[in-house]
Design a protein around this nucleic acid. Structure first.
Lengths: 115, 115
DNA sequence: ATAAAATACCTTGACAGATGAGGTATATCG
DNA sequence: CGATATACCTCATCTGTCAAGGTATTTTAT
């Protein structure tokens, strides 16, 4: 976990929604995917993950169901709703904007003669 | 202000430090620069800005002094310290990493035949 | 002269997201 | 049979943002 989570604050929900855009999944798996996609550089703290699920479900962006009991511990699966998909589109676009803004705001512009 | 500040949460300090890397400045001016560099898309709320100054000063990342009374309302100028410069370097590097992580995490990877 | 707008600063309380610390239960592996 | 991995959960605390409130000076328009 080389990246402090506070620099990603506010993106938890969108990251989860991104995972669910690929199909239903459950907490533990989503976190494993996040870790593997970042080469181990980032992963959710459990409390962060599960409070996010509550928040997203309460907002109608995802729904959940208990997985058919196969082998292993019980799993709660999550499904993204239409509202969730719409919000994901919006947040994705917003990320592009934010990235451009931060690139501009965190760069030392070059000194001009005319300055 | 088309970008919600919560997507920039955690970058306030680094944005301010970036401005001060260019030389001493004061609150109102820093905010004007942020607005102009983002084409009006982003600006600090006053409370956010001034609480950030307190935080940064308490952490020894900036120092402050009242400007010589010229024309206009009184201004409190801020100077970045050596510790501040060091942190700015670190946070700048971190932003590059974070940007790459979020690009990876917010993208729907393409479906492969082998999936 | 005077009212309005712009410049410039400040604090406090409320709110929301992240998380450490605590917990439960099952399955697998040595 | 004990340790580790899987898999879930909650609550109290901490931190950053910001609405709402405030002060004071200068400039601009009437």
């Amino acid at each position: 976990m080389s990246i402090s989570a506070d620099t990603l604050r506010g993106y938890t929900d969108t990251i989860i929604l991104t995972r669910l855009m690929r199909g239903d999944s459950y907490g533990y798996e989503i976190n494993r995917q996040v870790q593997s996609r970042t080469g181990g550089a980032y992963g959710f703290k459990e409390a962060t993950l599960y409070t996010a699920f509550r928040r997203l479900e309460q907002s109608g962006l995802i729904t959940s169901y208990w997985g058919e009991d196969g082998p292993g511990a019980r799993r709660r699966y999550y499904t993204i709703t239409e509202a969730g998909k719409k919000l994901w589109e919006e947040r994705s676009r917003e990320w592009q904007e934010t990235r451009a803004l931060l690139d501009a705001l965190l760069t030392l512009e070059v000194e001009h003669e005319s300055d």
